[in-house]
Structures are given as C-alpha cells and as structure tokens.
C-alpha cells in the first residue's frame, strides 16, 4: 500500500478545489487589509521625524547613523560619499554650506573634504526611534490623559456593573407592580444613542455642576439598557430555588444579591465588563462635549486635539496612537474567545 496515501488519508477525503483556493486568497488578502494599516502605524511610529517626511517612505524604520568624532561636541551624521577620484568612503559631515558639504574621515578627523551634496547619500541602518514614545510620555499631557481614561473606564465600569446587576436582579427575581412597565421603558431605549439627546444631557450636566468634570463623563452612560437587558436575561436562567433556600437560611435580600446572585451571574458580568471597558475607553463624542479643559481630556479627546493642531507632529501622534490602541489590543489578545462569543451570543455592541 502506498504509505503516503495511507498517512494523509482522512475520513472525509476532499480535494483542494478552486473555491478553497479563492477562500484562502480572500482570507490572506484580508489579513493584509485588516492588519496592514495597524502594522504600518506601528512601524511608522518608530521612525525618526526625518524618515517620516521622506517620500517614498521606507517600509522599515531606518535612521541615519551618526558617529562621535574627536574635536566635535555633537555626534556627526554619516554619509556614503563618491569622492572626486572615483573611490567611495564613509565620512562624517561637519557642516553644509549651500550645495557644498564639508566632511571628515572619522578615523582621521584632521583633514576636511569638500564635495557636492549630490555626491553623498546618508548612511542608514535599521533603527527604532523609541524617543518618540519616551518624549511624548514626558513632554505632553499624555500621562494625564491616560490617567483620566483609566479613571473614567474603571469607575464607570464598576458603577455600571453594580447598578445594572441590582436592577437586573429586581427585574428577574421579584414580582412587583410596574415591573413590566419598567422593563419596556428600558428596552425601548436600547438603541437610542446619546447623540440624539446631546443638548438636554448637557443641560443636566451643567445644572449638576458636572461640566468639565470626569463625573460628567462617567455618570450619564452608567445606567446602560444593554447591561440591564444582558444581565436580566442571564439571571432568569438561575433557578429561583437557590434564592428560596437562602431565604430559609435567614439571609437578607441584600446578602442574597451579593452572595448568591452575583457569583452565579459571573459569566454575564464578565461579558458586560468587557463591553463597558470597550465603550468607555473608546468613547469620544460625549467626553468631547463635557471636557473643555486640556488637563481633563481623555486619551481619545487628547489625541484628537493633538492631530488638530496647526503644526502636526506626526512622530508623537503616531507613538501616542500606538499607546492608545495597545491596552485594547492586549485585552483582545487574551480575551479574544470571550469577546467574540459574548458578542455573537448577544448581538450587542454600543
């Protein structure tokens, strides 16, 4: 028997057909289209400002080499030079006057060689410009924005989890007057976004003195109908007998909520946590309206204000954009399965 065929034999023998080929072609094209732009952003964020304005741009971050030469305080940029006698050399440029470049040999810095600037090309090598990152961390309000974003995301998520789960508990495990009315009101606002009630919510915020205040960003979106809906549906599946048993043991309703309901609803709470973190971290329009003081900006608003400046410093913007997408990317990398199953089972995303 043909050993190779024996080994590669499968239960469901299928030829590699044209449609398989087209499928993989589509998927691989998709990898380029979906990841490519992000990869390009990351690569660009590691380039020097000089390499960023280069056209056509190089794929990888190259930077010009420099060298320390005796007798000069600053490191000198290195060039590959075509010398008048036809030979080539790698020299360090001392200064440039018009179209004339004055260079020295790093090994023998005494003698100055003058060449036309067209006869020299910068000596480059692969170099990652981490200073884009360190500088933007140091010299801008980036850390402040990061801090604000973290505060908003964490507090808003905690508040959302607590009040939504309390409401879902009441709506799923109690019989009371007006229960259905409350539920219908919540459900009917599921798809009403904040963008259609901007003016009056801004009024409420102003009246409550939460304008230019992180609480003004945190509180209005906390009572999400999505969260109540999601948690209620899950809690309906938890058997009532557990609650009855806890009551017989003398537990108060509050304790039943804390110590029976919440632990049992953990999977749904996890899904809501992921959603809430995503919504809050990426939120833009509402923080843009509430926050007008620079030191209160969240990352998204801060990034927007940077890119809107007259003198756009792309090297810092790119680095900051990478740092902004990093947390979400890490969360995705570790929780990919939960996020995708959470979304496909609920069909929900803010």
């Amino acid at each position: 028997m043909d050993i190779k065929r024996f080994l590669t034999r499968t239960r469901n023998p299928r030829r590699f057909s044209v449609s398989d080929f087209l499928s993989y072609l589509y998927l691989i094209f998709g990898v380029f289209l979906m990841f490519g732009p992000v990869l390009w952003l990351v690569l660009s964020s590691l380039k020097t400002p000089a390499a960023l304005v280069e056209f056509p741009p190089s794929l990888l971050p190259y930077g010009q080499d420099s060298v320390r030469v005796e007798g000069y305080d600053e490191p000198l940029p290195l060039f590959d030079v075509n010398l008048p006698d036809g030979s080539q050399a790698r020299l360090a440029q001392v200064r440039r006057i018009g179209i004339e470049s004055q260079l020295v040999d790093p090994v023998n810095p005494g003698e100055i060689i003058k060449v036309n600037i067209n006869d020299r090309t910068p000596a480059k090598s692969l170099r990652l410009e981490w200073s884009n990152y360190t500088d933007s961390l140091k010299s801008f309000n980036f850390l402040k924005y990061l801090n604000n974003s973290v505060v908003v995301t964490v507090l808003a998520t905690i508040i959302t989890l607590i009040i939504n789960s309390m409401a879902a508990f009441a709506l799923s495990k109690y019989e009371f007057k007006g229960r259905n009315l409350v539920y219908v009101i919540i459900i009917s606002t599921l798809l009403i976004p904040i963008s259609v009630i901007l003016v009056p919510v801004f009024l409420v915020i102003t009246e409550l003195n939460m304008n230019n205040n992180l609480w003004g960003v945190i509180i209005p979106g906390a009572a999400t109908p999505t969260g109540v809906f999601l948690l209620r549906q899950y809690m309906l599946t938890i058997p009532d007998e557990l609650i009855a048993a806890a009551r017989i043991d003398g537990a108060s309703e509050w304790r039943i909520y804390w110590q029976v309901m919440l632990p049992l609803a953990a999977p749904a709470l996890a899904v809501l946590t992921i959603f809430s973190v995503m919504w809050r971290w990426n939120d833009f329009l509402w923080p843009l309206i509430v926050l007008s003081q620079n030191e209160l900006f969240t990352l998204q608003v801060g990034l927007n204000s940077f890119q809107g400046e007259l003198n756009v410093k792309w090297n810092y913007i790119l680095a900051m954009t990478v740092m902004t997408l990093l947390p979400i990317t890490l969360v995705f990398a570790f929780l990919q399965k939960y996020i995708t199953t959470g979304i496909s089972s609920t069909g929900m995303k803010g």
Partner: peptide, 18 residues
C-alpha cells in the same frame, strides 16, 4: 476570525488617525 474582528475594537479616533 480574529483578524477581521480586530478593527472593531479600535477606537474611532485611532482608526481615523491610522
């Protein structure tokens, strides 16, 4: 599946800047 889903998680500001 993850590849096609990844941009969904990016913030609109980040997407626009990319």
């Amino acid at each position: 599946r993850a590849v096609y889903f990844y941009p969904v998680l990016l913030s609109p500001v980040v997407v626009a800047l990319i």
